[in-house]
């Protein structure tokens, strides 16, 4: 697993542990001191991202769509922030 972290300006810490192969996510764990409502969605999101291409704008879209579809509220970070940290972890 590779790791990356980012403090969102005016927001919270996002950390990613990433296992990748062929520029796709095999497994991702997203931790940090942000808020996500409902909280259980974090595991669903991580599962949904398995097999996803590690591409900043595609990841941002997928995560945004996930949040929208689930009526979720992410506070202290945005979908783009999560995507950014995943990409950073990949570049390590």
């Amino acid at each position: 697993m590779t790791e990356a972290a980012m403090k969102v300006p005016g927001g919270k810490m996002v950390r990613v542990s990433l296992d990748s192969a062929d520029s796709k996510i095999r497994k991702v764990v997203i931790t940090g001191d942000f808020f996500l409502h409902p909280e259980e969605l974090i595991q669903e999101l991580e599962t949904q991202l398995q097999g996803h291409q590690i591409d900043r704008s595609q990841l941002t879209s997928t995560i945004e769509e996930f949040l929208r579809r689930n009526n979720a509220t992410l506070i202290g970070a945005s979908a783009a922030d999560l995507a950014s940290v995943i990409v950073s972890a990949y570049s390590r």
Partner: peptide
């Protein structure tokens, strides 16, 4: 710790 945090982290 917060619900999304890693304990050992």
């Amino acid at each position: 710790i917060g619900t999304f945090q890693g304990m050992r982290q």
